[in-house]
Amino acid sequence: MDLYLIRHAPALDAAPGGSDAARPLSPKGRRRFAQSVDGLAHLGLTFDLLLHSPWLRALETAELLAGLVRGETRVTPALAEPPGRPLLAELSGAGAAPVDPEGRLTRAPRRVAAVGHQPWLSELAAWLVLEDPEAGRQFQLGKGGVLWLRGEPAPGEMHLQALLTPKLVRALA
């Protein structure tokens, strides 16, 4: 499968007494990420499945990406916490390529996007590529940035294809 780990776009600070989960995107962050979506569309990128954290800034980022989704969107609480086995199971189920009774692939492996938060997306990438979630610092991901991985979503079984900075993604538009 191709897995695109996407960090939410820039968000406002929490309102006084408000929760971190309730922070919305900033107007500038929204505007810039809309350009990023144009950049991804320019690459011809579409997603068979879009997973996103339930937190508002991820929800709003996912909504901006919705035009690139050809299948389902799915709220995934495991994206709003440090990566663990439940998230791997979710990705594994999502990425399973359908096979016919003879075991042949009936279509290409799926393209899955996962919209979430730092440092957990970097830890997830480090776990999937290097088998070591603690090596997350090697996968720096800016707000609105995209990490593209390919392979089976299991520890050490994915390969890094590209790390697209927010500026680069916008420049593609």
């Binding site: 989960a21 954290s53 929800l59 995934t76 495991a78």
Partner: peptide, 15 residues
């Protein structure tokens, strides 16, 4: 399922 809990949380946060 976590998906149902996530749905409730996301709806509670939606503007």
């Amino acid at each position: 399922a976590p998906r149902a809990a996530g749905l409730l949380e996301a709806l509670s946060l939606a503007p």
